[in-house]
């Protein structure tokens, strides 16, 4: 039996949930970033899978989306990590529990 689109989507959903798990439950800012990156990777997997299983796969739309998404998430990671360092310099912690300046 060859894998169907469904299976890919379920794997992608699992990857997304794991990313969400990391982003939600870990205290360290870097973990949150890792989680977000995992979620983005899951989205990319969706793009590629949908492109591959689409009726007209000769148009590289999904691939293009994935490429741009990778480029943008690289930018996001760079800025995010820079912010982690900046926050660490300022507060001497990267524990997001202690970063609650925006508390209402």
């Amino acid at each position: 039996m060859t894998p169907t689109l469904q299976i890919f989507l379920i794997v992608s959903a699992a990857l997304f949930s794991i990313g969400l798990l990391a982003a939600l439950s870990r205290r360290h800012a870097i973990f949150i970033l890792i989680g977000i990156e995992l979620m983005l990777a899951a989205a990319n997997l969706n793009f590629i899978a949908f492109w591959r299983f689409a009726p007209q796969p000769h148009q590289p739309t999904g691939v293009m989306f994935a490429i741009f998404s990778i480029a943008i998430s690289a930018a996001e990671a760079a800025v995010g990590l820079a912010m982690v360092i900046a926050v660490y310099r300022h507060y001497h912690t990267t524990n997001v529990d202690q970063l609650n300046q925006l508390k209402g």
């Binding site: 949930s17 794991i18 969400l20 798990l21 982003a23 939600l24 439950s25 870990r26 205290r27 360290h28 973990f31 524990n95 529990d97």
Partner: peptide, 12 residues
């Protein structure tokens, strides 16, 4: 990193 938030697991 020791802290772990179990609510996150449930939501995920």
């Amino acid at each position: 990193d020791r802290g772990f938030n179990w609510a996150g697991v449930i939501i995920a």
